[in-house]
Nucleic acid binder design. Structure first.
Lengths: 219, 219
DNA sequence: CCACCCGCTCCTGTCGACAGTCGACCTGCC
DNA sequence: GGCAGGTCGACTGTCGACAGGAGCGGGTGG
């Protein structure tokens, strides 16, 4: 268990770099769910002090990537299948609001255009990790284009949990990353049909949850 | 600017007590929005080290109660009226999901009962601060009873921002704290009418946002 | 009188060290 | 052999101190 050292080229604070290094370390699967993340070891690996690692770990804890175990020790988090289902339902509610605000927005067409380019990026990518990024980027963009900053914030909080769910297994989400799955959302937004857009988003999330259920239940 | 010292009776960690002390200090209005929260000063007031205060402040930052200004200095946060409106819309989406899941839950009647007792507590309280607490407790209970842990988590994140919004002014929310405003929600849940419940929640939030708009615009 | 420069001071970023606590393991006794 | 007690190690909680940078005020030269 070790993380590569921090490069000193950057102008940002050590804390930010340590945070980013740790986040990508657990997100890349270098640490398995349940693994213990010791402050001293990480401090040694990253070449920074314990206090700096500590703050980064606390940040990750609030993001939901790590969770506190016995005596405050932090472990890589994992989600139960129930929680994953709950997560999708909350996402459906949030992104449902996003599309509803989006179709009511005066710059609906421009937003639809931006979403279409994000859609292209989704179909261009072949590597699974890149597809996941493109998918999350699409859904984030959906929230951002709504113009509701509180909505974006709430979604970002869920994003961390979503990435934890992705860590659980990398097969179930593949069918959801397809371009065809997202296109109807943009279509409905472009048509200005709010109710249809909400329904499509809802179905999108339900389908994702179902794929997850089938994949985990067979495993 | 000073916070009373921490009592040493508790068994919890200093960090938790410092966090709670700082949170209540900000929420009680001891520090006005925009006030600078210096680590050294707070450390002295609370009788703990800077590192401990620092962690508590970072926690408050992620809760949205404080925000980073120039050179990393933290100031008490405030919300624009636009953000408050956005906040209410996100809450409407989240709590709409809550009531929808609640009416589909097998223990709907028990939940309705629990909500009714929370309602009683809301009408009993006279002091504004206590009413606010009772109101937030009611809405939190609504989310908790849905059984969706991700929903509860998302709501809790919004709670911090909600309290910041409350700090903006203490007049506008008074009309929303009434028992009559919340009773229709419980009624709809008890009837098992999901659509009506969602609609009522939505109206509740819209009305709250409108009260806010009128109160701030006159000021 | 004004503009520029210098030193001061305050604040955060970062670090290394000490202390308390919990679990694990090993040992001795029943 | 099983169990109780003690010892060792590891990890986090907490602290005080040093370093760097930004803002500010005074002083000086034009």
């Amino acid at each position: 268990m070790s993380v590569e050292s921090l490069s000193a080229l950057d102008r940002s604070t050590l804390r930010e770099r340590a945070l980013e290094a740790l986040r990508s370390a657990v997100l890349s699967g270098r640490y398995r769910p349940g693994d213990h993340l010791g402050e001293v070891e990480l401090a040694g690996s990253l070449g920074v002090s314990r206090g700096t690692v500590r703050e980064a770990l606390r940040h990750l804890q609030q993001e939901g990537l790590v969770t506190a175990g016995n005596r405050g020790m932090l472990r890589v988090n994992s989600l139960t299948s129930t929680e994953v289902h709950e997560l999708f339902r909350v996402r459906a509610a949030l992104e449902g609001l996003a599309v509803r605000e989006l179709v009511a927005s005066p710059r609906r067409e421009a937003a639809a255009g931006a979403l279409r380019t994000a859609l292209e990026r989704l179909s261009d990518e072949d590597e699974p990790a890149a597809r996941i990024e493109a998918d999350l980027a699409f859904h984030l963009l959906l929230c951002q284009l709504s113009g509701n900053s509180m909505l974006v914030e709430a979604w970002r909080r869920l994003e961390g949990r979503m990435r934890v769910a992705i860590l659980n297994g990398s097969d179930w989400q593949a069918p959801m990353m397809a371009r065809d799955r997202h296109a109807p959302i943009v279509d409905a937004i472009e048509r200005g049909d709010a109710d249809a857009a909400v329904r499509v988003v809802d179905e999108h999330m339900t389908a994702a949850a179902q794929h997850f259920a089938e994949a985990t239940e067979s495993a």
